[in-house]
Design a protein around this nucleic acid. Structure first.
Lengths: 132, 132
DNA sequence: GCGTTTTTGACAATCATTCTCGTTGTCACG
DNA sequence: CGTGACAACGAGAATGATTGTCAAAAACGC
């Protein structure tokens, strides 16, 4: 399960997706990213973009958000566990860390005998620029 | 369109959905609930189930969860704000309250100038019965 | 009962995501 | 450097939950 068996291959497409994610700010949908790659002249299939994003997400290199609107949004984030504070108008996102929340979640789960705990948490609000 | 004059009507279908939600335990998808109603002999359209669930969710009478699997899950829950601790194997769910989390979220959002704050939080784990 | 207005429901439409499968590119090894 | 095995690609089809449509049916006030 660790890095021993997988043997991922280095491909042009994978690099392209990674490179794009390194440049863009904020969250973007798979289709969005695919369109950007296309307009850059990169020839990458939509299927591959999905596969690559999934792989990166599994590897923990990018974060996935499922907003109440439908499509999955991906973003390259700082390492380590954190959550997002998202403006529901313009989408501006701030990464926030909440050690207290992590321990709280662990404790609550443990109290009920649940093991192997993970959690999802998003905070939505209206950012200063969108309030007026 | 205006919220003041809405005047919802009492219909057999609406009652059926409500009644079913009052009986079943745990989260169920719209399609799931629809199938149950059908097998009971209730004649309700799938479209209506969706509409009714949405209405109930808007009214705050049921909770909606979007698990990483795809479909929306609905459940009749206790009143008031709370979150869910869900077994990722069998789906067994515990309602948990975390006043500390609520205030933390508010505070973090306020620090960044975000107003009108809401949040979503789910905890996933493996429940005692599914661990072995 | 009667008319008005909401609600229903069968079906079509939408649309992001996943699957399929023949083709192509990588990489390890000789 | 050549070659073979096999992962990765990609175009299009398939999937499947959710939403839109609109004529017909049901509920409520009087």
């Amino acid at each position: 399960m660790s890095e021993s068996g997988a043997a991922l291959r280095n491909t042009r497409q994978r690099s392209a997706v990674s490179a794009l994610l390194a440049e863009v700010e904020g969250f973007h949908s798979a289709q969005d990213l695919h369109a950007m790659l296309r307009s850059r002249g990169e020839r990458v299939g939509l299927t591959t973009v999905y596969r690559t994003l999934q792989g990166l997400a599994d590897a923990g290199e990018i974060d996935v958000m499922r907003p109440p609107g439908g499509e999955h949004l991906y973003r390259r984030c700082s390492e380590g566990h954190h959550h997002h504070l998202v403006c529901r108008v313009c989408g501006r996102t701030v990464e926030v860390a909440g050690p207290a929340v992590e321990t709280w979640a662990e404790r609550v789960a443990a109290q009920h005998g649940y093991a192997d705990v993970s959690h999802t948490l998003e905070i939505f609000g209206t950012c200063p620029g969108c309030v007026r």
